[in-house]
Amino acid sequence: MEKNLGLEGRSVIVTGASSGIGRAAALRFALMGSCVVAADVDASGVESIVSDISDMDGKAVGVPGDLTDALVVERVVTTAVEAFGSLDVLVNNAGIMDRMSALADVTDAEWVQVLRVNLTAPFMLTRAALPHMLSQGRGVIVNTASEACLRGSAAGAAYTASKHGLAGLTKSVAVMYRGNGIRANAVAPGGTVSNIKVNVTEGAHGPSALSAYVHNIGRLADADEQAAVIVFLASDAASNINGAVLPVDNGWAAV
């Protein structure tokens, strides 16, 4: 892969880097010559991706921990700056699914956990990253949203709300900081082969209601197809793309 997108030597944080889209993105950034901070709650997965990048002569450090913890967030950002001298790209990719619950069936615990991981953690990481990006006059944020940020038929109430919120956060950052050299965009993956788990309650209203729309999903993408778009949005090739939410879904959003 040619190192022609302005990413060589850039310091990049990728969350959810131990598997799926995050792992594929971390590998792609490393292939482009970027210096990668791999963050994930899965400590063994973090160790594995750092080892794989090192084996291909790339530069990577790992930060395991719960990204809803403010101390972990600070450690992730500080590690990028101290290890690589700057923070150029933040990829907020870590996320969890809900139980496909309809609103009347969403428990407080389900709501709080999904919103914390999918929306509050990206907010905290972006807030922590922005001072560094602003001081250097440049920076890129790429958020992994979902097809669920484009419609109401792709997931349960909690997940759908969290991803709509993440799309809104993306656009707010883009508008607020476009005059400061900061870009913020999001990918909205459709069905993708990954390790994300969906534990539905058999016979519950949500999964039953959503089943009518499953046929629109089309072909499942592999994680690297999503990662390719994330890397593109982070690159200089996307220098005039800001505030976009880009469906990567084989046309599902067009149905």
Results as ranks from 00 to 15, higher is better:
159 Y>M: 02
86 S>F: 02
138 R>E: 10
205 H>S: 00
201 T>V: 15
32 M>F: 13
63 V>K: 09
164 H>V: 11
196 I>R: 07
12 V>T: 05
142 V>K: 07
216 N>K: 15
118 N>K: 08
142 V>L: 05
143 N>T: 08
219 R>M: 14
112 V>F: 05
247 P>K: 08
211 S>L: 12
235 S>F: 12
51 S>R: 15
3 K>L: 15
184 A>V: 13
195 N>F: 00
64 P>R: 09
47 E>L: 07
178 R>C: 15
213 Y>E: 01
44 S>H: 11
169 L>H: 12
59 K>S: 14
140 V>M: 06
90 L>N: 12
178 R>A: 03
251 G>H: 11
252 W>C: 02
218 G>M: 09
77 V>Q: 08
180 N>G: 05
64 P>T: 09
30 A>S: 14
206 G>I: 02
78 T>W: 03
101 S>V: 04
160 T>H: 08
102 A>N: 10
122 P>S: 10
34 S>I: 14
37 V>Q: 02
83 A>R: 12
57 D>C: 13
176 M>P: 04
58 G>H: 14
233 L>Q: 09
80 A>V: 04
106 V>P: 01
241 I>H: 08
236 D>H: 03
112 V>L: 14
201 T>E: 14
237 A>P: 02
210 L>N: 05
46 V>N: 00
231 V>R: 10
119 L>H: 09
151 R>V: 00
180 N>P: 01
110 E>K: 01
75 R>Q: 14
228 A>T: 09
180 N>E: 15
52 D>S: 11
20 G>W: 06
247 P>R: 06
